[in-house]
Computed example of a mutant assay.
Amino acid sequence: MKIGIVSDGQYGERAYEQIRRRFSTEWILLPFSSLLVVDDIDLTIPPCDLYISYLRHPDIAIELIKTGVPVLLGVNLGPGFIAQAKEYNPAVIGPETMCSLLPNTEFWQINEYAKVFGRPVFHVLLEGEQIVWCQPIRRSPCGSTDVAARELNKQMFDQETMNRFALSICHTCRAPRFGKTCDKEKAGIIHLEELVSSLKGINPGLWEKSTQALKKVTCTIVSACDDEAK
């Protein structure tokens, strides 16, 4: 399967570097227009099985969608835009965040991609309550999952470690801090929820304790992101 990362230069470079390691991937750079309305768009791009759009202008994004090829919206322009886009091409997915995607859509191209990149899945080895090794099986396309997972090795799985892990995701995440649908704090919470869920089958007691701590950690994440945005 061939994936095209379509960008106007602001977002997508890190996703391209990650995705190209697992799929045949093309970097497609289109000009960004500051005009409110863009007419006569000449969209000449390489053929791909799936396009991931980091385009910020809705008119240019619509031209990409009109190709009829499945499109994953890395920059989600809102529910109204998605409703309009689906009139041209039903194979358009605008996930809440790029790390919330699951391989359960109607479109095999998006599902193949989402088996590798999307809502994270972790394989964790423990000694008691100490993390010996943490390896992402499915990860975010920005690379934040791998960075934060490496920082867990040799750490005790406690509330302090949970805080550090989630804030590491927020720091590394490429999502807009308070974007239309893709925020850093949401990415941190999603990753932490999935990390905690990975404990259920290997240490039920630690899983239960960590689940109880999730609410406090979630409040810390939102507060930290609020402070950093000021």
Rank of each mutant, 00 (worst) to 15 (best):
Q212A: 08
K180H: 07
F23T: 01
V116M: 15
P31A: 00
E185H: 14
Q130E: 01
K184D: 09
F157N: 00
E193Q: 14
E129C: 05
H57E: 03
G12E: 02
P47G: 09
P95L: 06
R174Q: 12
E127T: 05
S140K: 01
V38K: 09
M98I: 12
T161D: 06
K180R: 10
N203W: 03
K86L: 08
A229R: 09
G143H: 10
L101D: 03
N153W: 15
N89H: 09
C219D: 12
D49T: 06
I110A: 03
E127I: 05
L30H: 01
D8W: 02
Q130D: 01
W108S: 11
I62T: 13
G179T: 00
R177L: 08
G179L: 02
E13S: 15
F178E: 06
R174W: 05
E17F: 12
Q159C: 00
L195F: 11
A91I: 01
A175I: 00
I93H: 04
V38H: 01
L167W: 03
Q109G: 07
K200H: 08
N89F: 07
S7G: 05
Y88D: 09
K186L: 12
P103L: 12
P79L: 13
R20W: 04
P136E: 07
L192C: 00
R20E: 03
I221Q: 10
L72A: 01
K186E: 15
L73E: 09
L43I: 10
D49E: 15
S24P: 10
E87A: 08
E193L: 09
I82Y: 12
I110C: 06
F107P: 09
A224N: 03
M156E: 06
S140I: 14
D158Q: 03
A229N: 07
I45M: 06
P120V: 15
C182D: 15
L72N: 05
L35K: 06
K115A: 04
P70M: 07
I28M: 04
F107Q: 06
G118I: 14
V196L: 04
P31Q: 00
T44P: 07
I52K: 03
W207F: 13
P90R: 00
I169N: 02
S168R: 07
G12Y: 05
R21Q: 11
C170E: 03
P31D: 04
A175H: 07
R119W: 13
Y54N: 02
S223L: 12
V38A: 01
K180P: 08
Q10M: 12
D49N: 08
V132L: 06
R20L: 02
R14A: 12
G74E: 10
Y16N: 03
G188A: 11
L43M: 14
I41A: 02
V75R: 07
D39Y: 15
C134Y: 04
T44E: 15
E193P: 01
K86R: 15
Y113W: 11
T211A: 10
F107S: 06
Q84R: 15
N153K: 10
L55P: 05
V37P: 04
I202S: 02
I62A: 05
V116L: 15
R174M: 07
R56Q: 11
M1V: 04
I169Y: 05
T220P: 10
T105W: 14
K154S: 04
L152M: 14
P46M: 15
I131H: 00
D8I: 02
Q212E: 08
L101F: 06
I45H: 03
E228W: 12
S210E: 04
Y51A: 01
I82G: 01
M1T: 02
